[in-house]
Nucleic acid binder design. Structure first.
Lengths: 216, 216
DNA sequence: CAATCGTTGTATCGATTCGATACATCTGTT
DNA sequence: AACAGATGTATCGAATCGATACAACGATTG
């Protein structure tokens, strides 16, 4: 799970641990911050497996810092205009770079059958869905949809019980509603996939962004 | 986290492990099934701490089975009318019963400051909110509201970035929307709390269920 | 009847993740 | 210069996960 997230982020540029954590929170939909107690062991794990290489980015190391800066420039520009501080990781410590083996591992993990109905793992895979083939994308979405639908019907039949107090009832209802909206979201994504697989229609570009190719 | 859940469920009747797992999924809003690898160690932990007592419910043990059956009767009636099977845990193994120390521990854990912004832990506490004082209920809800609001503003400012492809963008947007609805849910709960603390108005019982005392 | 399969139920193992904590460096403020 | 706060790496013990094994019972079917 974490390995997939790390490899996916490193595909788009070299990063150090702290920054990986931030991206996991902001760029991906992961609301719960992963802890450093997970992150650093995961990085060590990946490095010993040959999937990433740690590059020492000492105070005076122009080539490595250059690579790290490049992937951060956009964020820096945005933030510098608003606040004074926000120091970039100018001279911190280790910067990690993905290897060819790491890229292969990423592809393998991304297409893996997504064991169990884990919401975090699913969101993560959707975040990296541009690296999947259209077929794998659709099957990923449909698998999740089936899981949620099954869960929903189970919970709904069990939620007819009236022995719940107002608080427990409220939690169950709110959760149920959330699942329904997840399903609606999946339906929208699936519709978009079908739309994208059928390129030519009467209108060359009806909805503007809708027909655009996957933006990288 | 799990300890709190187990103690809360055992407050309403003796249960065995398998049934605790089911209730965690159905009655409480926890969508992700907790694993037995968490549950059984947690039960052992609580038993060695003196918070619960394991009662052997052998094939011929009328008193223990009686207690266990009592808490299951409603569910049984509902299910028996629909399907033929669904064997009740007639002669399984261990049934757990909460102790006085366990009840004290439950109260302590429930009122605890809810470290970190964990969604599962929060939902759990709301499910058991009827055991809290109105003041603690409101502070629990407001604390969570503040957390979500902070997260939301952080993510929103960071989500202005346009370097996300459509999939990552969709995940971020959907997550953001989910957080907004969580906040709206909290607002509704807080409104209900304020309503409940102000019993007398022009209409004695305007909304039917609204003014009813907390249903146990 | 007996073979078989699905459900219920308890239990444990290794690996992953969490939450807390420590510590070092850099930056801005007083 | 002293200090506080953000940035950054790292590790420890405990909680949790996912897989797996095992046993007993009920229902279906040959």
């Amino acid at each position: 799970m974490l390995d997939l997230a790390i490899l996916g982020l490193l595909q788009e540029g070299d990063l150090h641990g702290y920054e990986i954590r931030r991206r996991l929170r902001d760029s991906l939909g992961l609301m719960a911050n992963i802890s450093f107690g997970s992150l650093y062991p995961a990085l060590a794990r990946l490095e010993s497996a040959g999937a990433v290489r740690g590059i020492e980015a000492g105070t005076a190391s122009p080539l490595a810092t250059g690579a790290a800066m490049g992937s951060l420039s956009g964020e820096l520009a945005a933030l510098r205009s608003k606040r004074t501080a926000i120091a970039r990781p100018k001279k911190s410590k280790k910067v990690y770079r993905i290897t060819d083996a790491g890229r292969a591992l990423f592809t393998e993990l991304l297409a893996a059958p997504a064991t169990s109905d884990d919401a975090r793992g699913f969101s993560l895979r959707v975040s990296f869905a541009k690296y999947l083939t259209p077929e794998l994308r659709v099957s990923l979405l449909q698998r999740r949809r089936t899981q949620l639908q099954d869960r929903l019907s189970e919970v709904c039949t069990a939620a007819q019980r009236n022995d719940l107090d107002i608080y427990a009832r409220s939690v169950v209802d709110h959760t149920t509603q959330g699942v329904r909206q997840d399903i609606a979201w999946l339906d929208a994504l699936l519709d978009a996939e079908r739309e994208r697989s059928r390129p030519d229609l009467t209108h060359p570009n009806p909805g503007g962004q809708t027909m655009a190719p996957v933006n990288d």
